[in-house]
Design a protein around this nucleic acid. Structure first.
Lengths: 258, 258
DNA sequence: TAGAGCTGTTTCATATAATAAAACAGCGTT
DNA sequence: AACGCTGTTTTATTATATGAAACAGCTCTA
């Protein structure tokens, strides 16, 4: 934990450990997990409990996320102009395509999921609003990379493809710098990207760019679903629907820059 | 701000200033509001923005609450966060009224059932902890909507009442935006809501608000039962009992205010 | 066009709060 | 009764937060 400089960062490093997979932590085990001192973590958790950010179960004495975060989260949801403006369009696209639809931006050189509408066909994807995925293994990421401004494109791509950042997620993942550059040219030429089980086996994804008023790509819109539902013949229809949605979103968010 | 000892408390003191009434702050004005140093507040806000807890508008440079809080809010397990503190009170109220008692919050613009105590008279309601019902057709929902902060009230109501979201569940369901607004004014004026077979034929429900320390409504408490047991004369007694219960719950979920 | 008056941001010596080892306390189990 | 596991408190030490001042960038306005 000593590598985190500010207390604000430490605070949220602790909070972030409470995930849906691991919603409960004791003081000692969380300190161990974080490689931090027990009494330090204790003080943070005690403070956060006093504020209602964490909730301490009166019997088990385990901590979990508290009502304060629910309340604050609710304030964001209702106020956020971004999601308020894009969500209805995502709903439209999802209805039309009947698959899960994502809106993502590039953040820290990764795909950052901003909004999501689940498929009415009820296939659960592991993606979550606010989470990240590698850019090189997703259709969303390919679009965001393909349209990077020429000024720093090479730089960003070289950084992403420095060996330590790349892991092969499936047999189809593109792991070489040369091949991804070829792929990105193709994406830019055809105006959309496709991910054929490169992130996860059985999962296919199609994505299109969302432009701002300066013709820069600020976000990407995608449809994802099981491979058996994404026949070649359907893709062009999906792309057309996604582009219509992307266009509608562009009209609404002329100002947004991530 | 110097009276706040720990940095964790300072962090959330800053975050708490972003309310629905005042969702945007600049560095200088927030520092003034808090009686704190400008550069101190700046560092906090810069750190929080890096984490996505705050969002800095690229043009106005004003800060607002960010996606990270939205994400964290979604992770909170309401059942475990509420139920330990509220359940005993629900039992009390249910004993006194001898009808089924519910505790609910507004989530995704719908009524979300957090806790429930069944009537000792053994009428089974279809409601379940963790399930949803439309806000406009329940007493719980009317309370939660009536006390929405003025900042985004209109927006939320308009969203809920865009035609495709409304279905008439019984002959009594209020389905027009105009009528629900009238109804909500009434609810706020009298301090409680009543649902006369608007969700389900034969089912009547009375609900009161639960406030937090900022006088914002965070939840709603209700009693429900068959229409023939809810005579006009009893309702005022039910409301009184519910309010007593709501008050007791408020005492328990009132957190330390930074 | 010069300058006043706002912003947000950076710097740096100083003060203060965060840290971590150790001891403590409470609870079950052996 | 002694062990091993919790969460909690204490303490001297160290590292971090602080805030005054200066800077930078912008929009008015005279």
């Amino acid at each position: 934990m000593q590598e985190l400089k500010s207390t604000v960062q430490k605070t949220f490093a602790i909070i972030e450990h409470f995930t849906s997979e691991r919603p409960e932590w004791g003081v000692t085990e969380l300190a161990q997990e974080m490689g931090a001192n027990k009494s330090t973590v204790y003080r943070f958790m005690a403070d956060l409990s006093k504020l209602g950010v964490l909730y301490k179960h009166p019997i088990t004495e385990k901590y979990s996320l508290g009502l304060k975060l629910f309340e604050l989260g609710g304030r964001v949801n209702l106020k956020s102009a971004f999601i308020d403006k894009t969500h209805p369009e995502l709903v439209e696209v999802s209805k039309s395509i009947t698959e899960t639809v994502h809106l993502a931006v590039l953040k820290n050189n990764q795909v950052f999921y901003v909004d999501k509408v689940e498929s009415p066909q009820g296939l659960k994807l592991s993606s979550q609003i606010g989470s990240y995925n590698p850019a090189y293994a997703t259709a969303l990421g390919k679009v965001l990379l393909a349209y990077l401004p020429n000024g720093n494109k090479e730089q960003v791509l070289d950084f992403i493809f420095s060996k330590r950042n790349i892991t092969s997620l499936t047999n189809n993942t593109i792991t070489s710098s040369k091949n991804i550059k070829k792929e990105l040219s193709k994406v830019k030429a055809q105006g959309y990207a496709i991910d054929k089980e490169e992130l996860e086996l059985g999962l296919i994804c199609v994505a299109v760019p969302i432009f701002n008023l300066n013709n820069e790509v600020v976000a990407s819109l995608s449809a994802s679903g099981p491979a058996n539902r994404f026949e070649e013949s359907k893709v062009s229809n999906y792309v057309a629907t996604l582009k219509k949605g992307a266009h509608a979103i562009q009209q609404k968010i002329g100002y947004f820059k991530p």
